[in-house]
Amino acid sequence: MTLLTIEHLDVALGGQRILEEVHLTLERGEIVTIVGPNGSGKTTLLRSIIGSLPPSRGSISKAPGLTIGYVPQRLHLDATLPMTVSRLMGLPRRHSAREIEQALARAGVTEHANRQVSDLSGGQFQRVLLARALLESPGLLILDEATQGLDHRGTADFYRQLEQVRQELGCGVLMVSHELHVVMRTSDRVICLNRSICCAGTPERVAASPEYRAMFGHDSQDALALYRHHHAPTPLELSS
């Protein structure tokens, strides 16, 4: 089932065209990652999809009744706003205490339920935001550099959880990430964005494309090496 179809999308911000002629479709159960240099319009694309930015041309159509779980790149909580973790989980829709507890447990942050959100570390806050997005059992999960502020272990846990969520909920996942090596490993499809889509396809195809290499230079070589490394059969598998 197609969750999202974007056609001929142009988005302008303050008179400047940020996105041009973007086409994108996303199927149920698919993990699609958007990569691209700073200022290439990645966040703008995500914000257009959730409805924060109106397209200046083209269309964004979503499957009827599609619920979106969204984890923003940064969330600044005003110091004047008191907010416990469990209260944040119930915004905008209330959930039972048990559901909230389960969601926090899945994200590995149960012990923080009664803490103030402002007291959390960046990584803890990011996990809470993911847990909150998952509470709605979204059909489409949109993540904007969701592993920012997580350490190596946290990032690994995060992607493991993502994989699990995709299997449990069968939701589509659209994310922006800078961690090329992880992207290559976890995504079904990669989209290389620089104002418009310059290349797209399976991770391996994108990693091999000249556009991608031109954009990321040496990083792309490393990522590809890691990707290949990960997918190479282990000696045990070879012998059996």
Binding site: R47, I50, G51, S52, I68, G69, Y70, P72, L75, L77, D78, L81, M83, L88, L91, P92, R93, R94, E136, I142
Partner: peptide, 19 residues
């Protein structure tokens, strides 16, 4: 109340929830 709070928290979160 809930919609006001969510909008106050973050306008993108509000949009994503259909507010």
């Amino acid at each position: 109340w809930s919609r006001l709070l969510t909008s106050t928290l973050n306008t993108d979160l509000a949009h994503a929830s259909g507010i």
